[in-house]
Design a protein around this nucleic acid. Structure first.
Lengths: 107, 107
DNA sequence: CAGGATCCCTGGTGATACTG
DNA sequence: CAGTATCACCAGGGATCCTG
């Protein structure tokens, strides 16, 4: 009984729904895999690795990932300014899930 | 080098993209969790368990899951006709991934 | 009960241009 | 290099009605 209730709550959980809608977008997999490809990534490094994504979308997605504590953003005082993105601990956990999802989807 | 190439190919893999777009929709998680809740599910059983989904969308998603060999559809010769949905082996594998994704997203 | 057929709408994404 | 600002489009999903 309590089990049924908790399943029902899981199915209709609003936070789950909201996080899913924000994080699981069209470009999520490419971006996360690209980030997992090296320790630190520059904005254009990611952009150039993903066919067809545009700056606007990549920028928005990186902000979302940062907001959800998946990605860390560091600004280096160089000329021109360099920005590098890397995973947080939580981001690495997410990367693992995305990896297994990718493996599954690619068959 | 060959490793870099395969990562690049993974990031831009068209089949992965296509399968993701078809399967990872707004209602995917609720439906998959609902299906994982019991051995066989009826259409309205799923529908009633998920707040806010409508027949149209549920029907389309179940067809997609069936097409991707995640869900098995059985028609029982009763009156009125009963239809029951259950996971294939592949569907169970998908369910595991969706479960860990849900656990992650719900924090 | 288990959907199919229509019509409609909104938000995610694309294209383009611009900045320090 | 690393973005932001607009504008516009289209497909996923919602509402409603209908059938065997």
């Amino acid at each position: 009984m309590t089990d049924l209730i908790s399943i029902y709550d899981l199915i209709n959980n609003k936070k789950l729904r909201k996080n899913y809608d924000e994080m699981m977008r069209q470009w999520t997999i490419p971006i996360i895999i690209s980030l997992g490809n090296r320790e630190h990534s520059g904005f254009n490094q990611i952009k150039n690795e993903i066919n067809g994504i545009n700056s606007n979308t990549l920028s928005k997605m990186l902000s979302i990932f940062e907001k959800h504590d998946l990605v860390k953003r560091e600004i280096l005082n160089t000329k021109p300014v360099k920005v590098r993105y890397s995973f947080t601990y939580r981001g690495r956990e997410f990367y693992k899930i995305i990896s297994s999802l990718s493996d599954f989807l690619i068959e």
